[in-house]
Protein backbone atom coordinates (compact mmCIF):
# COMPACT_ATOMS: atom_id res chain seq x y z
CA UNK A 1 0.00 0.00 0.00
CA UNK A 2 3.03 2.19 0.25
CA UNK A 3 3.00 2.52 -3.51
CA UNK A 4 -0.15 4.57 -3.53
CA UNK A 5 0.51 8.19 -4.30
CA UNK A 6 -2.47 9.18 -2.25
CA UNK A 7 -1.87 6.99 0.72
CA UNK A 8 -2.18 9.07 3.86
CA UNK A 9 -1.99 7.65 7.38
CA UNK A 10 -4.46 5.02 8.33
CA UNK A 11 -6.56 7.35 10.48
CA UNK A 12 -7.10 10.04 7.94
CA UNK A 13 -7.72 7.48 5.32
CA UNK A 14 -10.81 6.12 6.95
CA UNK A 15 -12.48 9.47 7.02
CA UNK A 16 -11.55 10.63 3.60
CA UNK A 17 -14.52 10.63 1.19
CA UNK A 18 -14.20 8.62 -1.97
CA UNK A 19 -12.92 10.60 -4.91
CA UNK A 20 -15.47 11.31 -7.57
CA UNK A 21 -13.46 9.59 -10.26
CA UNK A 22 -10.41 7.36 -10.06
CA UNK A 23 -7.21 9.11 -10.91
CA UNK A 24 -4.73 7.30 -13.10
CA UNK A 25 -2.22 6.66 -10.31
CA UNK A 26 -4.47 5.36 -7.57
CA UNK A 27 -4.27 1.76 -6.51
CA UNK A 28 -7.47 -0.23 -6.36
CA UNK A 29 -7.35 -0.53 -2.63
CA UNK A 30 -6.66 3.03 -1.88
CA UNK A 31 -9.62 4.48 -3.63
CA UNK A 32 -12.15 2.10 -2.16
CA UNK A 33 -11.06 2.03 1.39
CA UNK A 34 -13.51 4.55 2.88
CA UNK A 35 -16.86 2.88 2.18
CA UNK A 36 -15.61 -0.58 2.88
CA UNK A 37 -13.62 0.35 5.90
CA UNK A 38 -16.54 2.15 7.46
CA UNK A 39 -18.40 -1.14 7.33
CA UNK A 40 -15.52 -3.01 8.97
CA UNK A 41 -16.66 -3.01 12.58
CA UNK A 42 -20.44 -3.06 12.04
CA UNK A 43 -20.10 -6.08 9.74
CA UNK A 44 -17.60 -7.85 11.91
CA UNK A 45 -18.81 -7.19 15.44
CA UNK A 46 -21.90 -9.43 15.70
CA UNK A 47 -19.94 -12.51 14.69
CA UNK A 48 -16.86 -11.46 16.63
CA UNK A 49 -18.78 -10.78 19.84
CA UNK A 50 -20.85 -13.95 19.68
CA UNK A 51 -17.78 -16.03 18.97
CA UNK A 52 -15.67 -14.42 21.69
CA UNK A 53 -18.30 -14.32 24.43
CA UNK A 54 -19.91 -17.69 23.84
CA UNK A 55 -17.02 -19.75 22.54
CA UNK A 56 -13.60 -18.33 23.41
CA UNK A 57 -14.47 -17.13 26.92
CA UNK A 58 -16.19 -20.44 27.80
CA UNK A 59 -13.06 -22.23 26.57
CA UNK A 60 -10.97 -20.07 28.93
CA UNK A 61 -13.48 -20.68 31.69
CA UNK A 62 -13.13 -24.42 31.01
CA UNK A 63 -9.43 -24.00 31.64
CA UNK A 64 -10.21 -22.35 34.97
CA UNK A 65 -12.58 -25.18 35.94
CA UNK A 66 -9.86 -27.68 35.13
CA UNK A 67 -7.77 -26.28 37.98
CA UNK A 68 -10.48 -27.03 40.52
CA UNK A 69 -12.46 -29.85 41.98
CA UNK A 70 -16.08 -29.14 41.23
CA UNK A 71 -19.35 -31.04 40.97
CA UNK A 72 -21.20 -28.32 39.09
CA UNK A 73 -23.17 -25.13 39.74
CA UNK A 74 -24.54 -25.03 43.25
CA UNK A 75 -21.65 -26.92 44.78
CA UNK A 76 -18.39 -25.51 46.06
CA UNK A 77 -15.23 -25.26 44.03
CA UNK A 78 -12.04 -26.42 45.60
CA UNK A 79 -8.70 -25.22 44.21
CA UNK A 80 -6.55 -28.10 43.06
CA UNK A 81 -3.96 -26.46 40.83
CA UNK A 82 -2.57 -28.95 38.38
CA UNK A 83 -3.71 -31.96 40.42
CA UNK A 84 -6.46 -32.83 37.92
CA UNK A 85 -3.84 -33.02 35.19
CA UNK A 86 -1.35 -35.15 37.08
CA UNK A 87 -4.16 -37.46 38.18
CA UNK A 88 -5.21 -37.90 34.56
CA UNK A 89 -1.67 -38.72 33.50
CA UNK A 90 -1.61 -41.53 36.03
CA UNK A 91 -5.11 -42.75 35.21
CA UNK A 92 -5.02 -45.87 33.04
CA UNK A 93 -8.49 -45.35 31.62
CA UNK A 94 -7.65 -41.84 30.48
CA UNK A 95 -4.27 -42.87 29.07
CA UNK A 96 -5.96 -45.61 27.06
CA UNK A 97 -8.57 -43.21 25.73
CA UNK A 98 -5.83 -40.75 24.87
CA UNK A 99 -3.81 -43.33 22.97
CA UNK A 100 -6.99 -44.49 21.22
CA UNK A 101 -7.77 -40.97 20.09
CA UNK A 102 -4.25 -40.64 18.77
CA UNK A 103 -4.42 -43.96 16.93
CA UNK A 104 -7.72 -42.92 15.46
CA UNK A 105 -6.38 -39.59 14.24
CA UNK A 106 -3.23 -41.11 12.70
CA UNK A 107 -4.46 -44.51 11.51
CA UNK A 108 -7.76 -43.13 10.31
CA UNK A 109 -5.96 -40.25 8.63
CA UNK A 110 -3.64 -42.55 6.70
CA UNK A 111 -6.61 -44.62 5.56
CA UNK A 112 -8.77 -41.62 4.65
CA UNK A 113 -6.11 -39.91 2.59
CA UNK A 114 -4.81 -43.18 1.15
CA UNK A 115 -8.26 -43.86 -0.28
CA UNK A 116 -8.66 -40.25 -1.29
CA UNK A 117 -5.40 -40.25 -3.27
CA UNK A 118 -6.19 -43.57 -4.93
CA UNK A 119 -9.62 -42.26 -5.91
CA UNK A 120 -7.96 -39.22 -7.41
CA UNK A 121 -5.83 -41.40 -9.68
CA UNK A 122 -8.88 -42.74 -11.46
CA UNK A 123 -11.74 -40.36 -10.74
CA UNK A 124 -10.56 -37.75 -13.20
CA UNK A 125 -11.52 -39.89 -16.18
CA UNK A 126 -13.56 -42.83 -14.89
CA UNK A 127 -16.98 -43.49 -16.37
CA UNK A 128 -19.74 -42.24 -14.12
CA UNK A 129 -17.30 -40.18 -12.05
CA UNK A 130 -19.91 -37.59 -11.11
CA UNK A 131 -22.16 -40.32 -9.85
CA UNK A 132 -19.35 -41.98 -7.87
CA UNK A 133 -18.41 -38.70 -6.27
CA UNK A 134 -21.98 -38.04 -5.21
CA UNK A 135 -22.51 -41.48 -3.74
CA UNK A 136 -19.25 -41.73 -1.79
CA UNK A 137 -20.11 -38.36 -0.24
CA UNK A 138 -23.46 -39.72 0.89
CA UNK A 139 -22.43 -41.21 4.28
CA UNK A 140 -21.18 -37.78 5.30
CA UNK A 141 -24.73 -36.47 5.48
CA UNK A 142 -26.06 -39.34 7.55
CA UNK A 143 -26.16 -39.07 11.33
CA UNK A 144 -23.49 -41.26 12.92
CA UNK A 145 -26.04 -42.48 15.44
CA UNK A 146 -28.09 -43.88 12.57
CA UNK A 147 -24.96 -45.34 10.98
CA UNK A 148 -23.96 -47.04 14.23
CA UNK A 149 -27.44 -48.45 14.80
CA UNK A 150 -27.68 -49.89 11.30
CA UNK A 151 -24.13 -51.23 11.12
CA UNK A 152 -24.36 -52.76 14.59
CA UNK A 153 -26.85 -55.21 13.11
CA UNK A 154 -24.57 -56.12 10.26
CA UNK A 155 -21.69 -56.83 12.67
CA UNK A 156 -23.44 -59.03 15.24
CA UNK A 157 -21.79 -62.51 15.55
CA UNK A 158 -24.57 -64.08 13.48
CA UNK A 159 -25.28 -60.89 11.55
CA UNK A 160 -25.02 -60.11 7.87
CA UNK A 161 -21.25 -59.54 7.64
CA UNK A 162 -20.45 -62.90 9.17
CA UNK A 163 -23.07 -64.51 6.95
CA UNK A 164 -21.23 -63.13 3.93
CA UNK A 165 -17.94 -64.30 5.46
CA UNK A 166 -19.47 -67.76 5.72
CA UNK A 167 -20.33 -67.77 1.99
CA UNK A 168 -16.75 -66.83 1.21
CA UNK A 169 -15.46 -69.61 3.42
CA UNK A 170 -13.97 -67.23 6.00
CA UNK A 171 -14.21 -67.56 9.76
CA UNK A 172 -16.80 -65.37 11.47
CA UNK A 173 -15.24 -62.59 13.53
CA UNK A 174 -16.29 -61.06 16.87
CA UNK A 175 -16.58 -57.59 15.32
CA UNK A 176 -18.24 -55.88 18.26
CA UNK A 177 -16.06 -57.58 20.88
CA UNK A 178 -13.82 -55.37 22.98
CA UNK A 179 -10.72 -56.11 20.89
CA UNK A 180 -12.16 -55.45 17.48
CA UNK A 181 -14.85 -52.87 18.01
CA UNK A 182 -12.45 -49.95 17.93
CA UNK A 183 -11.14 -51.06 14.55
CA UNK A 184 -14.75 -51.19 13.39
CA UNK A 185 -15.26 -47.67 14.74
CA UNK A 186 -12.24 -46.43 12.78
CA UNK A 187 -13.48 -48.28 9.72
CA UNK A 188 -16.92 -46.74 10.07
CA UNK A 189 -15.40 -43.31 10.47
CA UNK A 190 -13.12 -43.72 7.44
CA UNK A 191 -16.08 -44.96 5.44
CA UNK A 192 -18.28 -42.04 6.43
CA UNK A 193 -15.74 -39.23 6.06
CA UNK A 194 -13.57 -40.19 3.09
CA UNK A 195 -16.22 -39.03 0.63
CA UNK A 196 -15.99 -35.52 2.04
CA UNK A 197 -12.27 -35.31 1.37
CA UNK A 198 -12.62 -36.96 -2.04
CA UNK A 199 -15.16 -34.29 -2.93
CA UNK A 200 -12.86 -31.49 -1.74
CA UNK A 201 -9.73 -32.79 -3.42
CA UNK A 202 -11.52 -33.63 -6.65
CA UNK A 203 -13.05 -30.23 -7.08
CA UNK A 204 -9.55 -28.81 -6.63
CA UNK A 205 -8.26 -31.26 -9.23
CA UNK A 206 -11.03 -30.23 -11.61
CA UNK A 207 -9.50 -26.81 -11.98
CA UNK A 208 -6.22 -28.19 -13.33
CA UNK A 209 -6.08 -27.46 -17.06
CA UNK A 210 -6.40 -30.65 -19.16
CA UNK A 211 -3.48 -29.81 -21.46
CA UNK A 212 -1.06 -30.73 -18.67
CA UNK A 213 -2.35 -34.28 -18.68
CA UNK A 214 -2.27 -34.45 -22.45
CA UNK A 215 1.36 -33.39 -22.47
CA UNK A 216 2.12 -35.95 -19.78
CA UNK A 217 0.50 -38.70 -21.79
CA UNK A 218 2.62 -37.81 -24.78
CA UNK A 219 5.80 -38.32 -22.85
CA UNK A 220 4.47 -41.64 -21.60
CA UNK A 221 3.52 -40.91 -18.01
CA UNK A 222 1.33 -43.57 -16.40
CA UNK A 223 -1.83 -42.54 -14.63
CA UNK A 224 -0.13 -43.02 -11.30
CA UNK A 225 2.69 -40.73 -12.46
CA UNK A 226 0.18 -38.18 -13.73
CA UNK A 227 -1.33 -38.14 -10.25
CA UNK A 228 2.02 -38.12 -8.53
CA UNK A 229 3.61 -35.32 -10.59
CA UNK A 230 0.64 -33.21 -11.68
CA UNK A 231 -2.52 -33.68 -9.61
CA UNK A 232 -0.95 -33.98 -6.18
CA UNK A 233 1.44 -31.00 -6.38
CA UNK A 234 -1.29 -28.76 -7.79
CA UNK A 235 -3.82 -29.71 -5.12
CA UNK A 236 -1.34 -29.74 -2.26
CA UNK A 237 -2.75 -26.55 -0.72
CA UNK A 238 -6.19 -28.06 -0.47
CA UNK A 239 -4.69 -31.22 0.95
CA UNK A 240 -2.96 -29.21 3.66
CA UNK A 241 -6.29 -27.74 4.72
CA UNK A 242 -8.01 -31.14 4.50
CA UNK A 243 -5.37 -32.68 6.74
CA UNK A 244 -5.95 -30.02 9.37
CA UNK A 245 -9.72 -30.49 9.15
CA UNK A 246 -9.29 -34.23 9.60
CA UNK A 247 -7.04 -33.82 12.64
CA UNK A 248 -9.46 -31.40 14.27
CA UNK A 249 -12.52 -33.55 13.58
CA UNK A 250 -10.97 -36.88 14.47
CA UNK A 251 -10.08 -35.65 17.95
CA UNK A 252 -13.75 -34.97 18.65
CA UNK A 253 -15.05 -38.43 17.77
CA UNK A 254 -17.85 -39.32 20.12
CA UNK A 255 -21.21 -40.42 18.71
CA UNK A 256 -19.96 -43.28 16.59
CA UNK A 257 -18.25 -44.95 19.55
CA UNK A 258 -21.44 -44.79 21.60
CA UNK A 259 -23.48 -46.06 18.66
CA UNK A 260 -21.17 -49.04 18.07
CA UNK A 261 -20.87 -50.05 21.72
CA UNK A 262 -23.43 -49.28 24.41
CA UNK A 263 -25.95 -47.46 22.21
CA UNK A 264 -29.10 -46.89 24.24
CA UNK A 265 -28.05 -48.81 27.36
CA UNK A 266 -26.64 -47.04 30.40
CA UNK A 267 -23.39 -49.02 30.27
CA UNK A 268 -19.91 -47.74 29.57
CA UNK A 269 -18.03 -48.61 26.36
CA UNK A 270 -15.09 -51.00 26.81
CA UNK A 271 -11.78 -49.30 27.62
CA UNK A 272 -10.34 -50.46 24.30
CA UNK A 273 -12.85 -48.35 22.41
CA UNK A 274 -13.05 -45.16 24.46
CA UNK A 275 -11.89 -41.89 22.99
CA UNK A 276 -11.15 -38.86 25.14
CA UNK A 277 -14.53 -37.38 24.24
CA UNK A 278 -16.25 -40.53 25.47
CA UNK A 279 -14.16 -40.65 28.63
CA UNK A 280 -15.06 -37.04 29.28
CA UNK A 281 -18.75 -37.63 28.67
CA UNK A 282 -18.61 -40.45 31.23
CA UNK A 283 -17.14 -38.21 33.88
CA UNK A 284 -19.59 -35.37 33.19
CA UNK A 285 -22.75 -37.43 33.33
CA UNK A 286 -22.01 -40.59 35.26
CA UNK A 287 -25.64 -41.53 35.13
CA UNK A 288 -26.73 -39.60 38.19
CA UNK A 289 -23.46 -39.59 40.08
CA UNK A 290 -21.38 -36.75 41.42
CA UNK A 291 -19.84 -35.38 38.25
CA UNK A 292 -16.16 -34.53 38.34
CA UNK A 293 -16.24 -31.43 36.16
CA UNK A 294 -12.70 -30.32 36.98
CA UNK A 295 -11.24 -33.54 35.67
CA UNK A 296 -13.54 -33.49 32.65
CA UNK A 297 -12.47 -29.95 31.82
CA UNK A 298 -8.82 -30.99 32.16
CA UNK A 299 -9.43 -33.66 29.53
CA UNK A 300 -10.76 -30.93 27.26
CA UNK A 301 -7.61 -28.89 27.77
CA UNK A 302 -5.47 -31.95 27.01
CA UNK A 303 -7.32 -32.39 23.74
CA UNK A 304 -6.85 -28.72 22.93
CA UNK A 305 -3.10 -29.05 23.48
CA UNK A 306 -2.92 -32.17 21.34
CA UNK A 307 -5.01 -30.51 18.65
CA UNK A 308 -2.73 -27.52 18.60
CA UNK A 309 0.39 -29.66 18.40
CA UNK A 310 -1.03 -31.90 15.70
CA UNK A 311 -2.34 -28.98 13.66
CA UNK A 312 1.06 -27.33 13.90
CA UNK A 313 2.79 -30.58 12.88
CA UNK A 314 0.39 -31.10 10.01
CA UNK A 315 1.05 -27.61 8.76
CA UNK A 316 4.79 -28.16 9.07
CA UNK A 317 4.67 -31.40 7.16
CA UNK A 318 2.38 -30.11 4.43
CA UNK A 319 4.18 -26.80 4.08
CA UNK A 320 6.03 -26.48 0.83
CA UNK A 321 6.51 -23.98 -1.90
CA UNK A 322 3.22 -23.40 -3.56
CA UNK A 323 3.23 -24.73 -7.10
CA UNK A 324 1.56 -22.31 -9.44
CA UNK A 325 0.92 -22.49 -13.11
CA UNK A 326 2.46 -19.64 -14.90
Amino acid sequence: MGTSTLAPGPVGEAERPAPAAPGPYETKRGKLRPARERAFWPFLLPALLGYTVLFVLPALYGFWVSLNKWAGPGSDMEWKGLANYTALLENDAFRTSFVNTFVLALGGGVAVFGFTFLSMVVLRQAKGRGFIRSVVFLPMIISLIAVGAAIGFLLNPNGAVNTVFGWLGLDPQPWLGPDMVFRCVIGGLVWSSTGFYVALMMSAADSIPPYLYEDAKLIGATRWEQFRYITLPLTWDVFAVCAVLWVVNSLKVFEIVIAFTTAGTPGSPPLQARTVAVQQFLSVTNNGGAPDLGSAAAMGVFVLIVTTVLVWLTRRITRRERVELS
Partner: peptide, 30 residues
Amino acid sequence: RKGNDNLATEMAAGQGPDLFDTSTDTIDRF
Protein backbone atom coordinates in the same frame (compact mmCIF):
# COMPACT_ATOMS: atom_id res chain seq x y z
CA ARG B 1 -32.93 -43.27 30.02
CA LYS B 2 -30.70 -40.77 28.22
CA GLY B 3 -32.81 -37.79 29.23
CA ASN B 4 -31.65 -37.80 32.83
CA ASP B 5 -27.89 -37.92 32.14
CA ASN B 6 -27.44 -34.42 33.52
CA LEU B 7 -29.96 -34.77 36.32
CA ALA B 8 -27.51 -34.49 39.22
CA THR B 9 -25.94 -31.34 37.78
CA GLU B 10 -29.33 -29.72 37.22
CA MET B 11 -30.53 -30.67 40.69
CA ALA B 12 -27.39 -29.27 42.27
CA ALA B 13 -28.03 -26.02 40.43
CA GLY B 14 -31.50 -25.84 41.98
CA GLN B 15 -33.31 -26.61 38.74
CA GLY B 16 -34.19 -30.24 39.10
CA PRO B 17 -37.66 -31.78 39.48
CA ASP B 18 -39.25 -32.44 42.88
CA LEU B 19 -39.14 -36.20 42.41
CA PHE B 20 -36.37 -38.13 40.72
CA ASP B 21 -35.90 -41.76 39.75
CA THR B 22 -33.34 -43.59 41.77
CA SER B 23 -32.44 -47.07 42.85
CA THR B 24 -30.37 -48.98 45.36
CA ASP B 25 -27.23 -48.68 43.26
CA THR B 26 -27.57 -44.98 42.40
CA ILE B 27 -28.89 -43.44 45.62
CA ASP B 28 -25.47 -43.19 47.28
CA ARG B 29 -24.29 -40.84 44.56
CA PHE B 30 -27.26 -38.50 45.05
